[in-house]
Design a protein around this nucleic acid. Sequence first.
DNA 1: TTGTATTTTGAATGTTCGTTCAAGATATGC
DNA 2: GCATATCTTGAACGAACATTCAAAATACAA
Lengths: 193, 193
Amino acid sequence: MRNAEFDREKVLRSAMTAFMDKGYGKTSMQDLKAATGLHPGSIYCAFDNKRGLLLAALEQYRLDRSVEFADFFCGDEPVLTQLKTYLDDQVQKCLSCDSSQTCLLTKALNEMAEQDAEVQQIIADSLAAWQQALTQLFERATMQGELTSGRDCEHLARYLAMGIYGLRTFAHTHPDAETLQALADQLYHDICA
Amino acid sequence: MRNAEFDREKVLRSAMTAFMDKGYGKTSMQDLKAATGLHPGSIYCAFDNKRGLLLAALEQYRLDRSVEFADFFCGDEPVLTQLKTYLDDQVQKCLSCDSSQTCLLTKALNEMAEQDAEVQQIIADSLAAWQQALTQLFERATMQGELTSGRDCEHLARYLAMGIYGLRTFAHTHPDAETLQALADQLYHDICA
DNA sequence: TTGTATTTTGAATGTTCGTTCAAGATATGC
DNA sequence: GCATATCTTGAACGAACATTCAAAATACAA
């Protein structure tokens, strides 16, 4: 006879950035209360517990990133041109100071791998879906003659994923634009040339 | 009038693996007591506090890795052959199930970046030293004609570092030998060919 | 307007944490 | 063998934590 008052997506996005800021372990319920505007009881009512909120946030993150990804590759420019734009955007995200631009999936993966098998599996599934989308991208590029045929698209996708993971970690110690852009450029070159 | 009874290096290596297992935040003093065999009071006496123990462990880790690195590149084979061996060993470490083979530096960096500036700086310094060693490797390879001259050795080193960072994260979701080896092989090829 | 099912609220709970400290143990110098 | 400086021990501390719950508030159906 009464509906929840809060906006679920807004709450989840707030929780996302809170988790990205401090990591899951160091984000207290007080932090989450401050970030989401929800009192502890409401969080427990809606998401069971802190871990449930993380799971929901991970799912929302996957969704948001999936939409963002589609936007990058919906135009009618050559696929590889779109990929270059995508990579440049990754560099910009690495440069951004605010931590809401880091990847929640890899952050949580690094923090909780081997501690919480279920969370690890959920993250692995999301990352696998991303890699599959990258694979389809290279297949499209091959079909349109942008890539010499006969190349292993799945391998290319994995290599690109590895490069982006590495770029993110690298950026933690070398957050200057020139260096990161040079690395991204070489990565693009090694994959597409 | 009385010396400490424990072996400092052993204690630090135990603490290292404890931190690598659970991460800094989730490793409790009880865990550290169990891992090191030292009672809380002794830890506080020797390292001030939990954070001090981390700092000491990070330093020991840097030292250990530095020695290990030198061992890989002390022979008289071609530098690039040694590098290939080094990379293959990285793959093996990624495959190893026991978490004591993960990199304490990147693990701590991912966990504490932007939360503890001093720790971040110490880690960044260690990683920078590693990258400089890689740079010198490429310079040696160039001088010995294994690499076409005129290449930017610092850029090569950064690219290799990025690749290894990425390989580690990638391994968290795809821990199979073939895939990782293929990525490492391509990384080697892209750098040395 | 009234009744009721549901949400919101925030104080209280029990647990676990990092840290401290005083008492006990022991190696070393005399 | 005695004295003493140092280390070891582990119980105890307050703070912070995730979680619970009963009371208050509120939207909706009738």
